[in-house]
């Protein structure tokens, strides 16, 4: 018997701006997350992938409870945890924790590492000093650091060590879901491999569920079980990693995957590239958000917003896409040429 999802989002909308400042003009409203629906199964690693402005970080913060969702339901273990004030929401979602993109900046520069870790436990009412020290020690060794780090200040740590401390700081609270925000950005390749290895190890050791926010597709392919591709606040394609990387259905996914640099030399000339820049999140096109850059776009695309539907050939895997023409897309990709506008190959 399969148990229910650990986290489930249903039509979640999250809005930036809006309202007006005192004596100021009304701020334009940005729907940074616009109707996102998906489930996360216990123990899996789900990647949220997309480019800057696609709303992946906003979605992560909404799930975490730091931002209040405008509408939609968020269920944790089947229990409704949405519709609360930010403070209440954060309390209800304490089993979800977040590792910042820049874990060094997430540490108070005036506090030693030991002090910071200790504080984390005190916030969560672990009042016994010996108990706190034991848990800190335990967690430091789990992330591969020794206790000499407790006396150091954040600026004395290397990038890799800061990531480890960032992880230790939240794992100490025994979370079940960990949101990793761009966990490898700014890390050198040789350090990145070690850190990714550590993520894998900790996930199995503590039975964690990961939500992996990233734009680095080679890392995502290596680390995650499922992928959600986001564009302008919406999920455009969702499914298991390998099928999506092997046979992407949505035009945007295909563009994104082909643009991601791989180690095979010299394919630049043959690569189709998207035209223009993405539209501003405050002026999302009607219907399908990607239609202004998509070769398959027609009148239907501007009139109706495509729903996230199962891809027929791959429905058993839970492969879904939000595109009116995904079948045409499959068809035209059969001869190897991706149907897209762009700065054509020379």
């Amino acid at each position: 018997m399969k148990s229910g999802p650990i986290l489930s989002l249903e039509n979640v909308v999250s809005v930036y701006g809006g309202g007006r400042s005192w004596l100021g003009r009304a701020q334009p409203e940005v729907r940074a997350v616009d109707g996102v629906t998906f489930d996360v199964q216990e123990g899996e690693a789900l990647a949220l992938v997309g480019e800057s402005g696609c709303g992946k970080t906003t979605l992560a913060k909404t799930v975490l409870g730091l931002l209040r969702e405008r509408s939609g339901n968020i269920r944790l273990d089947g229990k409704l945890v949405s519709g609360l004030t930010p403070q209440q929401a954060r309390l209800a979602r304490m089993t979800i924790q977040y590792v910042h993109q820049d874990p060094g900046a997430a540490l108070d520069p005036w506090w030693t590492i030991g002090h910071t870790l200790d504080e984390t436990l005190r916030i969560h009412a672990v009042s016994d000093r010996a108990e706190r020290a034991r848990r800190i020690e335990e967690m430091l060794s789990a992330v591969g650091l020794d206790s000499s780090f407790l006396r150091r200040y954040p600026h004395e740590l290397s990038g890799g060590q800061q990531r480890r401390i960032g992880l230790a700081r939240i794992l100490i609270l025994h979370p079940r879901i960990v949101i990793l925000d761009e966990p490898t950005s700014g890390l050198d390749l040789s350090v990145q491999a070690t850190v990714l290895g550590l993520f894998d190890e900790l996930r199995h050791q503590f039975g964690l569920t990961y939500i992996f926010v990233s734009h680095d597709l080679s890392v995502v392919r290596r680390m995650c079980d499922r992928v959600a591709i986001m564009y302008l606040g919406r999920v455009v394609e969702l499914g298991p990693t390998e099928p999506i990387f092997r046979a992407p259905v949505h035009s945007y996914t295909r563009a994104l995957l082909s643009a991601s640099p791989s180690l095979t030399p010299g394919q630049l000339d043959g690569m189709p590239s998207l035209r223009d820049d993405p539209p501003s999140p405050s002026a999302v096109p009607s219907g399908c958000g990607f239609r202004t850059r998509c070769a398959l776009a027609d009148r239907v695309c501007s009139a109706h917003r495509p729903a996230l539907e199962a891809v027929v050939d791959d429905a058993a895997n839970g492969h879904m896409a939000a595109c009116h023409h995904w079948q045409d897309g499959l068809f035209s990709s059969a001869d190897g040429s991706l149907a897209m506008h762009g700065v054509g190959a020379q």
């Binding site: 890799g160 040789s190 350090v191 990145q192 491999a193 070690t194 850190v195 990714l196 290895g197 894998d200 680095d216 080679s218 890392v219 392919r221 290596r222 680390m223 791989s262 180690l263």
Partner: peptide
């Protein structure tokens, strides 16, 4: 990540 077998730095 494309080549790494066991993710060791």
């Amino acid at each position: 990540p494309e080549r790494s077998v066991e993710l060791k730095g």
